[in-house]
Amino acid sequence: MKIPKLLQALLVLVVVYVAFKIFFNVILGQLIPSSLLTMYMFFVICGVFMVFTATEEGARELVAPIKALVEDPSKKNIRNIVFIIIPLLIGGYVYQKMVPSFDAPIELRSIHPAPPSSLKAFGKRYDLMTLENPYRKFEKEDPEKFKELVKEGGAVYIKNCQFCHGDKLDGKGPYAAALNPLPLNFQDVGTIAQLQESYLFWRISTGGPGLPKEATPWLSSMPVWQDFLSEDEIWKVILFLYDYTGQSPRSWGESH
């Protein structure tokens, strides 16, 4: 059986649409933005109709069912149904587009902004170019003490951080779903494994408000932890972050 041209065209469009969705959302794992998909589909529709109407017969076959629908007296019922459905669809689409929402406006954001070279916190000035974790040395010198420090860091984490960053440090804490952008997933190799401990110290002690402008401080809900934790506690919790995730901090020697 030969498929009518109009159906062919519609099928091609549906296949292309689904293919886009599957290719990006499933195979590549990064969804295709709906604004872009709309424009893509608009031009795909243009392309498909261009191909189908390039020849005179093709064009005639394509519009034949539509012509019949509008003109053929025997198709009165279908006609009436179609003439009701189409305005409804358009109306629904317009409603969808116009209905007010609570979405915040969209901002561009860099996730790991370049840190300053020094930092004012706890009433002191730290040189971030040379700052090191004072407890890191115990990892080799006194493993027992190091273990103890990590454990203390873990306690600090559970009391303060896990609500957002999760008890598995995967960014899926109980509050995470309410936040956008999401809390960082420390298990991911793209986060703390890429950073030096001094960077974490900067990010933890000054929190979201301490971010530079390009990192949209107004979008981060990270508290300014220097108001709640001591310097020691921050260093310990940093030890815990690396220890628990099995990552090691980026070492000195290479600067950005």
């Binding site: 370049a114 840190p115 300053p116 070279s117 020094s118 170019m129 950005h256």
Partner: peptide, 8 residues
């Protein structure tokens, strides 16, 4: 180049 540490 970024200038956040140029003075240093």
């Amino acid at each position: 180049p970024m200038l956040d540490s140029v003075a240093a």
